[in-house]
Amino acid sequence: MDIARQAVSFLTSRGLKLATAESCTAGFIASLISSVPGSGACLDVGFVTYSPSGKAGFLGVKKETMELHGLTSEAVAREMSEGALRQEACCADVAVSNTGVADSAPGGGPPPGTQCFAWSFRAPTGEFMTFSETKRFEGERNDVRRAAALYALSRIEHYFERRWSREKGGKSDE
């Protein structure tokens, strides 16, 4: 089964709604989900916030976080995914975010293909549990973007299970 179908199957089988907060992937994660028949049952909203002002204005990413950690950072990815879930009209239980560089960053910065992700889960109490990772992908610009989008979807179930383990007092090995 392909990754997008597997993600839709997982989300719908648990009655979960997904929000995406995308920078480098520029909507590719939401596009992959929406390509699956029946995805309307699990896709709530997608944000494409490519610029720092978009990340701050639409998702509430703090300017200080971007300055201190850089745009390609797990800290920014975490604030993006939690920011998506905080939006008044967002009905999602799960958010996935991505920020990174697909090719050479101007003026130095992280190596090409560096991608930062976060997966946030809304608890019934309204609190969030967020996991994050940094991964590097090889290839041309659009190869990196596609690989990052697929990776983001492939880890939803993994972190959902980790969330349950953590809530029940299990140990986390993030």
Rank of each mutant, 00 (worst) to 15 (best):
D2F: 11
S9A: 15
F10P: 00
L16H: 11
L18R: 04
L18D: 01
E22K: 03
E22V: 12
G27T: 13
A30E: 05
L32P: 02
I33S: 00
S39V: 03
S39N: 13
A41W: 06
C42E: 02
L43R: 04
V45K: 15
G46E: 03
V48F: 04
G60I: 15
K63A: 14
K63F: 13
L68G: 08
H69G: 08
T72M: 04
V76Q: 01
E79W: 08
E82G: 15
E88T: 06
D93V: 01
A95Q: 12
A102W: 02
A105P: 07
A105N: 02
G107F: 08
P110V: 09
P111Q: 11
P112R: 03
Q115H: 05
Q115S: 10
F117Q: 02
S120N: 14
S120L: 11
S120T: 15
F121Q: 09
P124D: 13
T125L: 11
G126R: 12
T130F: 02
F131N: 08
S132C: 15
K135N: 10
E138K: 11
A147K: 05
A149L: 01
A149E: 01
L153T: 09
S154C: 10
S154G: 11
R155I: 09
E157A: 07
E161K: 10
E161D: 13
E161H: 12
G170P: 06
S172T: 05
D173M: 14
D173T: 12
